[in-house]
Simulated assay, not measured.
Amino acid sequence: MTATLSSTRARAALRTTARASAELLLIFLMLAVTLWILGRMWSVVWPLVVGLLLTTLTWPPTRFLRRRGWKPALAASAVTVLFLLVALGVVALIAVPVASQSGELTDGVVEGIQKLREWAAGPPLNIGDAQINKAFDTAVSRAQDGLGSMVGAVVTGVSTVVNGLVTAVLALFLMFFFLKDGPRFLPWLAHQLPGRLATDVPAVAARGWDTLGAFVRSQAAVGLLDAVLIGLGLWAVGVPLVLPLAVLTFVTAFVPIIGALFAGLVAVLIALVSNGLTDALIVLAIIIVVQQLEGNVFQPMIQSRGLGLHAAVILLAVTLGGSLAGIVGSLLAVPIAALIAVVWNYVREQLREPSHPRTDESDAGAAVPS
């Protein structure tokens, strides 16, 4: 018996597909318009984002002081001043020496890539393909541009660029107000929204804040441990530029997976150029051991709850963020992906149909063996 295609069902399926496609197109259009608006407002959005990230780091000591009876304004002022002093100390003790060695760091990476090229062209590989040589040339160019811009942006951006200075000042003021009035924001927001939004939006915001805080604090702690351990290992081996490499390790820790690979590659290339192949292999072994400790010991101990994202999702998010917005996109990709996951999980919880318990008769019938 052969099955025939029902024209009625086919038309119904096509209508359903068309309706779903139109709804998806509307969603994508809304996202595109939202991104366009954010791009036009970036001078305001970026200080807001930086202020929120700084607040996640400084909220625990502020909460500690408030629980000890300090007034909100006094606690926020004390923590803000302490944070500013620590930041200025870091700039004076670390950023200035790193800035003076950033050019040497970039030249060392380029020279290391050239050595790898020469090694690949000789025995036993004897690679002489023009496309591979072109790929090495492209890698050298990108290393010069990318590493130089990253180190320059991290080290000297806030102190030398007017826009960076304005962003830092605005972010600092926003951090103070977030610390001072943050706990009153969600109740205020609930009173401003109508209907069910008064419940849903504050709930999602609270979950998003917890997720963002967990990510920033855990990544900062893990990055600091990585920087200290790898820095000590580089110092013990005798690799130059220990301080810039340690700072680079800490900064790139906020870009999961790709950041660790990038910082490790830079350290190995510097060791290869300055100390030779043996020390480069030792540095590679040190980095692998530290990364294994990070993945299997540091992360589970420091991060009380995960982001709920698969490693493949994190990798794709970082790649997409980097292609769309460069370094800033790579830094913000994982927090944004985590916040999207928070919203999706909440929506899924609200749309889930409640389970219908069976009646007593059905339970009794099910309990009787046949």
Rank of each mutant, 00 (worst) to 15 (best):
A12N: 03
A20V: 11
L24F: 10
L24H: 11
I27K: 12
L29V: 09
A32V: 09
L38N: 04
G39I: 00
V45D: 03
W46A: 15
V50D: 02
L54E: 03
T55R: 06
T55P: 01
T56K: 00
L65A: 06
R66C: 02
R68A: 14
K71G: 04
A75K: 02
V79I: 10
L84E: 05
V91A: 00
V109R: 03
G112P: 09
I113G: 00
R117N: 10
E118C: 11
W119F: 12
P123I: 13
L125K: 04
N126W: 04
I127C: 06
D129S: 13
K134D: 13
A135F: 14
A135D: 07
A143W: 03
G152L: 05
G152I: 05
V161Q: 14
V162H: 09
L165M: 11
L186M: 09
R196Q: 12
D200F: 08
V201H: 01
S218Y: 05
A227G: 06
L232Y: 02
L234F: 08
L234C: 10
L243V: 05
V247R: 01
V247W: 09
T249G: 05
F254P: 05
F254E: 13
V255M: 11
A260W: 06
A271W: 01
N275S: 15
L277E: 15
I282Y: 07
I286S: 04
I288H: 11
V289R: 02
Q291P: 08
L293C: 11
L293S: 10
F298S: 14
M301V: 15
R305Y: 13
G306D: 04
G306I: 00
G308I: 01
G308H: 02
L309E: 07
H310A: 15
A311T: 07
A317M: 11
G321H: 04
G321M: 06
G326E: 10
S330I: 14
S330K: 10
I336S: 15
A337E: 05
I340R: 12
P354S: 15
S355T: 10
T359V: 05
E361I: 10
